[in-house]
């Protein structure tokens, strides 16, 4: 039995493309779309997969990362899915890819204008944990009622002395919509302002949203407690990079640990060019 190019039928892809175009036209706005049941579980990237399927053409070069790495099991699984159903070329090199599907990271290598970054999004609604009702949060977005979001940040500072959100750090897009950048570490937030097209797909929650190239993306903060994208001050133990996001790895029974780049392609290419520590 053979499936259509990139699995989804053309009608469905067209429906998804319309949602993407609407998302691009209203940056940061969550567009409802009729998410299809995919042959992988909800919560495992069905939104990203549908967006990728709608974007891919036979000439594309596709890259998939999960936690920054090409070799994590779910990244492998999704990459295989498109190798099988779309027959597109795949790569692990960020610079060579035209479409990159990601979960939880933005690649360290700066993206350029002819690339599309597709995010897998578990909960697209940044207000969800303040207000569980979809009917209410849609109204809050519509009326731009974001006071409650700042109350949460205020409470963080009052209790912890700083904004205690480390990932999925909310942003405001083009001074209008508050948006969840998906669970990327806040270290990645500055990279959301990019020459590449960024698309966000939430399959289970049936939402697509977008950041067109060079969209203004501001992380929420206070004037006297500005957004701080810093990370732990370690260099990568493998390539020596000081500017990349690191995974902490426990290496022995005594709890010894080392820090290595979470972006495996970035780390490998630095080591290839002899910049290893």
């Amino acid at each position: 039995m053979s499936y259509n190019f990139a699995y989804l039928d053309e009608q469905t892809k067209r429906m998804i493309r319309r949602a993407i175009l609407k998302g691009v036209a209203i940056p940061g706005y969550q567009v409802p779309f009729a998410s299809r049941e995919m042959p992988m579980p909800y919560g495992w990237g069905t939104g990203g997969v549908q967006v990728s399927a709608a974007c891919l053409t036979p000439d594309d070069v596709f890259k998939v990362i999960d936690q920054g790495a090409d070799d994590t099991t779910n990244a492998v699984s999704i990459r295989r899915f498109f190798e099988k159903t779309a027959g597109v070329a795949v790569t692990e090199k960020t610079a060579e890819a035209t479409v990159i599907q990601t979960r939880h990271r933005i690649p360290e290598t700066p993206l350029c204008a002819d690339q599309i970054l597709v995010y897998q999004v578990p909960i697209p609604e940044p207000l969800r944990f303040l207000e569980p009702r979809e009917t209410e949060t849609r109204k809050m977005h519509g009326l731009e009622e974001y006071g409650l979001m700042h109350v949460k940040l205020y409470e963080d500072i009052a209790r912890h002395g700083e904004i205690a959100t480390a990932y999925a750090y909310p942003v405001k897009v083009e001074d209008r919509y508050v948006m969840d950048p998906s669970p990327i570490p806040k270290f990645d937030n500055p990279k959301l302002e990019s020459p590449a097209l960024q698309l966000f797909g939430a399959g289970r929650e049936q939402r697509i949203y977008a950041l067109p190239p060079f969209t203004k993306v501001a992380s929420l903060d206070f004037e006297d407690y500005p957004f701080d994208p810093s990370k732990a001050a370690h260099p990568c133990a493998l390539c020596g990079a000081e500017d990349s996001y690191l995974d902490e790895v426990i290496v022995d029974d005594a709890g010894g640990r080392m820090f290595v780049c979470s972006d495996t392609d970035y780390c490998a290419s630095r080591r290839d060019t002899g910049e290893a520590a």
Binding site: E145, Y146, G147, L148, H150, V151, Y154, E155, I157, A158, R159, D221, F222, E223, D224, Y225
Partner: peptide
């Protein structure tokens, strides 16, 4: 918190200095 309760209206109308 009590402070957050009082601050909410300020933040709702754009106050951004903690």
């Amino acid at each position: 918190s009590a402070g957050g309760n009082v601050g909410e209206r300020l933040m709702a109308v754009g106050a951004r200095h903690y």
